[in-house]
């Protein structure tokens, strides 16, 4: 489903954010990526939907080579990949429903999206997505009037409305308090389990990774340092990933 083969990402300016990474992710997996900030977690996720320039090796997603793909191919690929952001990235001034409908943009004819005349099917998908994250009653409220946790759930609904095959979550709980964090993580876990969507999550907190992950990928300085079952991960492994002992800062609840 997602195949990194010796993938290397270099940013303009020479920073090597991903260095010779080879990983294969099977359909339906729930994978957690951990590492220090700057270790290349975000870059790894963004390589999947072609947001960062891949300069070496290959990244194959849904049998489509991301490196060097045309804009049209990339758009087609992205329409199958939902993405969830640390800062939610909702259009604050727009209503929740319109934010979720953004997930359908790639599927509707151009004239319909221009005039804002959405097909009933797409509206239905958006409403179902909102129901799945349990926020349907807020459908016609401005996004800015929601709390942080609610906003993130709208963000998830937007990704779900795409009817995606892959879900990328870039530090989805980093801006949330512990209780809301757990709720959002449970939502993501449930979506993975019920809908079988391959999920790739970046996390900073180790305890969250342990609580919800199945498979763990550890990155350090852009290099793959661990890839395996999360149950086998010892403190030694974490030390290897982080380059230091675990501190309370690395845990959500101490």
């Amino acid at each position: 489903m997602i195949e990194f083969t010796n993938a290397t990402v270099v940013y303009p300016g020479g920073l090597k954010a991903l260095d010779d990474v080879t990983v294969t992710i099977e359909p339906g997996e729930f994978v957690v990526v951990v590492g220090l900030s700057g270790a290349g977690k975000s870059t790894m996720l963004r390589a999947v939907n072609g947001f960062v320039p891949i300069v070496g090796g290959s990244v194959k997603v849904l049998d489509q080579e991301v490196r060097g793909a045309s804009n049209k191919d990339l758009r087609g690929l992205r329409s199958n990949i939902g993405m969830i952001f640390q800062t939610f990235n909702l259009v604050n001034r727009a209503r929740v429903m319109n934010n979720v409908l953004m997930g359908r943009l790639a599927q509707v004819p151009r004239w319909r999206s221009t005039l804002g005349m959405w097909p009933e099917d797409d509206k239905e998908l958006a409403l179902q997505a909102l129901e799945r994250v349990d926020i349907i009653e807020k459908a016609y409220i401005r996004a800015s009037d929601l709390s942080g946790g609610q906003q993130q759930r709208v963000g998830i609904a937007r990704a779900l409305a795409q009817d995606p095959k892959i879900l990328l979550a870039d530090e989805p709980v980093a801006s949330l308090d512990p209780v809301t964090s757990h709720m959002v993580m449970r939502d993501l876990q449930r979506i993975n389990r019920d809908l079988g969507i391959t999920t790739l999550i970046n996390l900073h907190f180790l305890d969250l990774a342990r609580a919800y992950g199945k498979r763990l990928i550890g990155l350090r300085d852009g290099k793959l340092v661990y890839d395996g079952d999360i149950a086998d991960v010892s403190d030694e492994v974490f030390r290897d990933i982080y380059g230091r002992a675990i501190t309370p800062d690395d845990l959500l609840e101490t």
Partner: peptide, 18 residues
């Protein structure tokens, strides 16, 4: 929001409009 819209596979004009 622009990045989020691009991530859904929207066209450039759609990203701007929405």
């Amino acid at each position: 929001p622009l990045e989020a819209a691009r991530a859904t596979g929207s066209r450039h004009a759609q990203v701007i409009q929405y």
